[in-house]
Design a protein around this nucleic acid. Structure first.
Length: 798
RNA sequence: GCGGGUGUGGUGGAACGGCAGACACGCUGGUCUUAGGAACCAGUUCGCAAGAGUGUGGGUUCAAAUCCCACCACCCGCACCA
């Protein structure tokens, strides 16, 4: 048989589609397997090979599961709301709807050409009404429960995209879309109260099987810390200054306090402050700094003392100064800290620069040299003196604070609530109405979906408001509660809304009465195995776990965690070893590879190029190698014999190796083993039909088109894709003879061939009979003889 | 700074503490061809050799790429989080 990719691929892709073999059945009596990959954003540039790699892992596993008899759900869809499409539409004047449809069509065609075994009957599109109706439904559920709310705070704002961004969307102080510097701006925005789920998000990690670094990154992102809130009395005004600290045990060492430059205290008591000019000047200076300057470059502490107001240490009554400094952030804790220079490096630096007292309260350090952050005996601390256990001291202080009513234990999270609205057109409209009398009113459920109205001009407004704000017919409406004239919310949801629950919709994509049928959810959830990119770990993964946990709490889904297992693929780099990007011009188009070499070759090479979880550079020559392999595989039908096979042991070893490697996502070594087997067959010059049928089935998840073609050529009925996965016989994986290494003092001197499980004496005798061994032993005395059966003989001589 | 990871031929990469370099690329030589940027065959860690060899230096062990300690380099997160 010859390897003719074009003919085979067209033929089998058509047959698969006509037979619907990859469509999941809602047959609850079968054992199920739900495999999930991150659905693509259908960008204008089409797919690149990175997409193919991202899907190839679960593709192989799904195909293997089907052959093992599982009812497999392996769906695909499109996460189609988002800024790039809208920006493209603004530039070209083509409506985002049209652009999206065209892009989805192109992506679909590309995916199909690779021969992925997706269930195409369940495709979803987050911008489709039947889908976003339920995105809005979930939002309203959250709104009802107080988890969706409006608040005026400092938010991340991208001046270039003219949108508010969530913390997750502005990691590193850069806009996720255009990479420009994000600024902090006070704005009245929608939030989802994800912080209320912070503990649940942490606890849930205990019960799931995620890659360790995925769990770690999520834990860090949530960033839970435990400590205490303390209220310091102020001299000069009658308010308390509330701070958060993780080290209340060092309270006797507090010699000053620091508040963030934006702290409201300053404005509020400007009358009592003698140096407002200096404070305002400092504040302005800080506001001008970019995130980068503030966090990366600044080593030297800066700040200004507030004249006219000071604080009282609640434990010892000492009067201490208050400073403003940008090393304290308004966004974390209370925006104010108690400074303990003896035991905190930042406070130490600040105290040194401003000549503030440094009082040690824990034995062990040297305040001339620096802050001591270790443990030790408490000193200078009144009732804490002599205590040596940090935990006990902290508990003691918190008990004291609570008793006296000057503070209490508490926790803080780095994670912030999810800034949820975008001043953009191409997103799900937020289904809320503003009524002068009734305030914020939810759009009634029966009116969902609240449709995104068609518009001609969807450029953002001059004042940074959503394009929808200019559409009177959309904005003006009747209040659902009182019927009076009211106005609609005109902002839309962020891109991450649709993807926060899409895995649920695949289970029942056409349901009009619920986001998915309960019975079906019971059967299919949770997702058994989810593979995707590391870049989504602190964003999509966190968001979707949050939504899912909320849905679980309101009884809409049957399990607390959506994903039982999570793995991640590494990037495909350009041939230059750099990340693929349009600007570098090193992007590889999968279509061209399919055209020239075939889909099976592309699939095989992507999984063979290196460890699945690691980044690896593209190599055209590597692709050719995989093509050669498939050509040689196709030719096996020419040398096949009908008799007894001679490769029993190798065949069973191969079944074992390929089966276990697939489970461990070690696709590269699974393929290498198949290549090795082929080399062995070539050397033997023969393969039996039974052996070839096994080989073809093992190859099928990787290169399904050629596998099907060979299956048919060998006279088999049905699809190879649905054939039974071979099972190895452990007894048959063992050779009757073994080659053992013989070492003298740990150095290899010879190899011997012995029957399996030969005893110690036989092994030693055979070893000593080797001439190189004998000559090495000559004139030496044997100190020790080690024999590890079937492995090694090591003779220690002197 | 903190946390995590990775260092193996010319290249991508294999190796339950037990024969380092599987598999593939590339390269060299050959066969076949009008031709070869096709296909096939042989060779290919370095070194003429003794021997050496898995980032560096120690250690444990009969035996270390693998385990332990210190260091170096690179990559990825987080980053003045109180």
């Amino acid at each position: 048989m010859k390897y003719e990719s074009r003919i085979m691929e067209a033929k089998w892709q058509k047959k698969w589609e006509e037979a619907h073999i990859f469509e999941a059945q809602d047959d609850f009596s079968k054992k199920k397997f739900y495999a999930l990959v991150e659905f693509p954003y259908p960008s204008g540039s089409g797919m690149h090979v990175g997409h193919i790699k991202a899907y190839s892992g679960m593709e192989v596993i799904s195909r293997k599961r089907r052959m093992e008899g599982y009812n497999v759900l392996f769906p695909i869809g499109f996460d189609a709301y988002g800024l790039p499409t809208e920006n493209y539409a603004i530039k070209t004047g083509i409506h985002p709807r049209a652009v999206t449809d065209k892009n989805i069509e192109r992506f679909t065609e590309q995916l199909k050409r690779v021969g992925f075994s997706f269930d195409w009957s369940r495709v979803i599109d987050t911008t489709e009404e039947g889908y976003y109706k339920w995105t809005q439904w979930i939002f309203l559920q959250m709104f009802e429960k107080g988890l969706a709310f409006r608040d005026t705070t400092l938010v991340n704002y991208c001046p270039s995209c003219k949108v508010v961004l969530s913390n997750e969307d502005s990691q590193g102080g850069k806009c996720d879309i255009c990479k420009s510097d994000v600024i902090q701006k006070a704005k009245d925005v929608w939030y989802l109260r994800i912080t209320e789920y912070a503990d649940k998000l942490l606890e849930g990690l205990e019960e799931v099987d995620y890659l360790p670094n995925v769990k770690l990154q999520q834990r860090n992102w949530v960033g839970k810390s435990t400590g205490a809130f303390v209220n310091f009395s102020l001299k000069g005004c009658d308010e308390k200054l509330r701070i958060y600290t993780t080290r209340p045990d060092t309270l006797f060492g507090v010699t000053f306090m620091v508040i963030a430059p934006e702290h409201p205290l300053i404005e509020k008591y400007s009358q009592s402050i003698a140096n407002m000019d200096a404070l305002t000047a400092y504040k302005d200076e800080c506001a001008k700094k970019t995130e980068f300057e503030r966090t990366q470059l600044v080593k030297e502490k800066t700040g200004v003392r507030i004249e006219g107001i000071s604080a009282i240490n609640p434990l010892n009554g000492k009067e201490i100064p208050i400073y403003i400094s940008d090393y304290v952030m308004m966004g974390y804790g209370t925006g104010a800290i108690m400074a303990v220079p003896a035991h905190d490096e930042r406070d130490y630096d600040f105290a040194k620069k401003f000549g503030i007292d440094i009082i040690p309260v824990i034995k062990g350090g040297n305040i001339e040299e620096g802050a001591y952050t270790g443990d030790g005996e408490m000193i200078n601390s009144s009732f804490l003196d002599g205590m040596t256990n940090k935990k006990d001291s902290i508990a003691r202080v918190i008990a004291f604070l609570e008793e006296k009513g000057i503070g209490e234990g508490g926790v803080q999270y780095k994670m912030k609530d999810w800034a949820f609205n975008r001043q953009r057109y191409w997103g799900e409209p937020i289904p809320v109405v503003y009524c002068d009398d009734c305030g914020m009113v939810a759009v009634p459920y029966e009116e969902l979906p609240l449709r995104l109205p068609p518009m001609q001009d969807f450029k953002p407004g001059e004042g940074g408001e959503s394009p929808l704000a200019s559409l009177e017919s959309f904005v003006n409406c009747a209040c659902p509660k009182c019927g009076k004239k009211a106005r609609r919310e005109t902002d839309t949801m962020p891109q991450w809304a649709g993807s926060s629950w899409y895995f649920l919709r695949y289970i029942d994509p056409h349901n009009t009465d619920a986001l998915a049928d309960k019975e079906k959810l019971n059967y299919w959830m949770p997702v058994d195995w989810y593979n995707g990119g590391m870049e989504h770990v602190t964003r999509h993964m966190i968001y979707s776990r949050f939504w899912h946990k909320f849905l679980y709490d309101i009884g809409a889904v049957p399990c607390a965690e959506p994903y039982a297992k999570r793995t991640a693929q590494g990037l495909i780099l350009g041939t230059d070893g750099e990340k693929m990007s349009k600007s570098r011009g090193n992007v590889v188009d999968p279509n061209l590879v399919v055209d020239e070499y075939g889909a099976d070759v592309l699939r095989l090479y992507i999984l063979f190029m290196g460890e699945y979880e690691k980044a690896a550079p593209w190599s055209e020559n590597g692709v050719k190698g995989c093509k050669r392999f498939l050509e040689r595989v196709a030719a096996l039908t020419d040398i096949m014999t009908n008799g007894e096979g001679k490769l029993t042991t190798s065949t069973h070893k191969l079944i074992k190796k390929v089966s276990s490697d697939i489970e461990a996502m070690k696709f590269n070594t699974a393929i290498a083993a198949m290549m090795g087997y082929l080399n062995e067959v070539s050397e033997a010059g023969t393969i039996s039909k039974d052996e070839l049928l096994i080989f073809v089935r093992l190859l099928c998840p990787f290169a399904p088109h050629i596998a099907e073609e060979m299956w048919e050529t060998l006279g088999m009925k049905g699809f190879c894709s649905m054939a039974e996965w071979p099972v190895h016989d452990e007894a048959k994986t063992v050779d009757s003879t073994v080659e053992m290494a013989v070492q003298i003092n740990g150095k290899l001197r010879a190899t011997i061939v012995l029957p399996l499980n030969a005893d110690r004496e036989a092994a030693l005798a055979a070893a000593k009979a080797e001439s190189r061994v004998a000559s090495a032993l000559e004139g030496k005395s044997i100190v020790k003889e080690i024999v590890v059966p079937n492995r090694i003989v090591n003779i220690v001589v002197r």
